[in-house]
Computed example of a mutant assay.
Amino acid sequence: MSILETIKSRRTIKKFKTDPVHSEKLMTWLEAAAMAPNHRMTEPWEVYFIGQETRAKLNHKTNFGNAPVLMAVLSKHGATALETEENALATACFVQNFNLAAWEEGVGTFWSSIAAAANKREILGVPEGYDVIGVFGVGYPEEISEPKPRTPMQNKLKELP
């Protein structure tokens, strides 16, 4: 699959099969994710793999679609407000690289912002000085939804003098 096909076909997965995702594959995708652009090479991301006990405490309304792998991706704060923002943006690029690398091999993801809440951060043991970019279910899709309509890019373009 070409990169354009991968990007255009990627979907958020809401129901996963129980088939395991092998740790070697996860590491391959994480290593690819780490090639994300990040200003001043801060490499601000950290990944927490979430076990069953912690998952139960998170108490997500859909249990992350029963994904066999659950992970949180954190972004470290920078020395300045600007660097903290740049780090969060770099970590979002890290996440997108991971999502696309996994999708190319038939594995989908579900991105949840559940850990933005203080009590969920506490459950995950997120230290001060970190933002949680998301909690991700990862696995083989049980269902793949149709693409949602997008605003034509022509409607999003502006030309400056």
Rank of each mutant, 00 (worst) to 15 (best):
N66L: 00
E105Q: 15
E122R: 12
F64Q: 02
V95A: 08
E128H: 13
S112R: 08
Y130M: 09
E85G: 09
T54N: 07
V132R: 03
W103Y: 06
N63S: 10
S75R: 13
A88H: 10
A115I: 07
H60W: 13
N97K: 06
R55G: 10
G129Y: 09
L74P: 01
K76P: 03
F64V: 07
H77P: 01
W111M: 08
E86Y: 12
E128K: 15
G78T: 07
E53P: 01
N87L: 09
L82K: 13
G137H: 06
Y130Q: 11
W103G: 03
K120N: 14
E142S: 13
F98I: 10
A117N: 11
Q96Y: 03
G78W: 03
A56D: 13
S113K: 12
N66R: 14
A79P: 02
W111L: 06
F136T: 02
K120V: 03
A67E: 08
P127H: 13
V95M: 11
Q96C: 01
A117G: 08
F94P: 11
G129N: 06
V135Q: 01
N99T: 09
A102K: 01
N97R: 09
A90V: 14
N99L: 04
P68Y: 07
L58A: 04
L100R: 13
K76N: 12
G78E: 03
K120Q: 14
S112I: 02
Q52I: 01
E53Y: 00
T109R: 09
L124H: 08
V73C: 07
F94T: 06
V73Q: 08
